[in-house]
Amino acid sequence: MILLELLSGKNPMDGSFEGDQSLVNWISHGFQKNEIMEVIDPKLKGLIDISGAQLHSKLDCVTKIVEVGLACTRYAAGERINMRNVLRLLKEAKAILVKGE
């Protein structure tokens, strides 16, 4: 959950969430619609040079990190990813970013 909060700049009790909407649902919806940058904190977006040559690598890295956050917040505990796989996926995200430089 903390990872999703860091990426979105929102907390789970954010006033912009109405009804059944939650931080996880909001990010998941953006992720499924391939609109990942719509759920990223504008301050964080400012750190991602969207005009840079490595834009594809940066987006792949952010996408991988969001995947990890969503996998950790599945409703059923048995569906959640284990920490060994979290570490592996985060290392993959780092490798994507480093390779794109």
Rank of each mutant, 00 (worst) to 15 (best):
D20P: 01
D20R: 09
G46P: 00
I36K: 13
Y75T: 12
S28P: 00
V39L: 01
Q32L: 11
I50P: 00
L97N: 06
T63R: 15
E67F: 10
K43D: 12
G52W: 01
N82Y: 04
A76R: 15
I81S: 08
D14Q: 05
L97F: 12
L3P: 01
M13E: 15
A53P: 05
N11H: 12
N82M: 05
F31T: 09
E18N: 06
G78E: 13
D14N: 12
Q21W: 09
L6P: 00
D14K: 08
N85A: 06
C61Q: 07
N25S: 15
R84N: 12
N85F: 08
L90T: 09
G100H: 02
D20H: 07
N25Q: 10
I81A: 02
R88K: 13
I50M: 12
L4V: 06
L7S: 05
L90G: 05
R80Y: 02
Y75L: 13
G100M: 05
I48V: 15
G30K: 11
D49N: 15
V66R: 11
A77K: 12
V66P: 15
A53Q: 13
E18V: 09
E18P: 00
E79W: 10
M37Q: 07
N82E: 11
V98W: 01
F31D: 03
G19Q: 08
A76V: 10
V39S: 06
L4M: 13
L55I: 11
